[in-house]
Amino acid sequence: MAIIEIHNITKVYNTDQVPVHALNGVDLNINEGEFTAIVGPSGSGKTTLLNIIGGLDKPTSGKVFINQTDMFALSGRKLIDFRLHHIGFVFQAYNLIPVLTAKENVAFILQMQGQPSRQCEEHALQLLEAVGLEDKVDKRPAELSGGQQQRVAVARALASKPDFVLADEPTANLDSASTNNLLDMMGSLNEREKITFIFSTHDQRVVERAKRVINLVDGKVESDEYR
C-alpha cells in the first residue's frame, strides 16, 4: 500500500532571473515498509524531492499525498503539525538541540505531541535503547561522537511513530564503522518494525543496503529499481 503518492511534481527555482528546473515531472509511489535510496549526481534534485516529500518545500506544480492526505492543501500551522505526527527527519549534520541531553532531545518530540512527561521519558529511554545508546542518555550532543549523535537523531525521528523517516545524506559525516552501525540499526528497525526509510544519498554503502533505488537525473526519475 502506497503511503506516499507523488503526482507530476515540478520545482522551479528563479535564481538571478534564470529559472532552474530542479524537478521535472516526478511521479512516484512509496509503499509502507520500504527501505528506499534516492540517488543521483549533485544537482539532480534529490534533496529538493526529499524536502517536498517532507513538506519543508512546496512544489511549483503537482501533488503529494501522504496516506491520502494532500499535504500542500494544509495550512502552514497544520502542515507543521502534520510533520510532527507523520514524518521523521534525520539530517546530514544530526541537528540535535545542543542544550538538551540525548534523552531530552528524543522526549522533546513526544512532549510537543502532548504526551505526559513521565511517558515521554520512558518512551525516549526505550528508543535510545533500541538504537544502542542506553548508556549515553544523559549526554549532550557535544559529548557524543558523530555516529552516536546520528543514532540519537534516528531515535528522535522515530519518537513520534511517523509514517516514514526521511534521511538526507545521513552517513555523509560518518566514518565507515559508524556508517555500518547506523545502517545495521536502521535496517533492523525496517525489518523488525516495518518502518519506512527514504534516503537521499551519494554513499554506495547505503545504496547497497537499499531494497529500492530511485535514480534521479536532471530532476527526472531515470530508473526505479526494486531488489
Partner: peptide, 16 residues
C-alpha cells in the same frame, strides 16, 4: 537561524 529551521522542520510550531 539554522537551528530554528531544524526545529520547525521536525514539527515545532511557530507558537512554541
Amino acid at each position: 537561524r539554522f537551528e530554528f529551521g531544524v526545529m520547525m522542520a521536525i514539527g515545532t510550531s511557530r507558537a512554541r
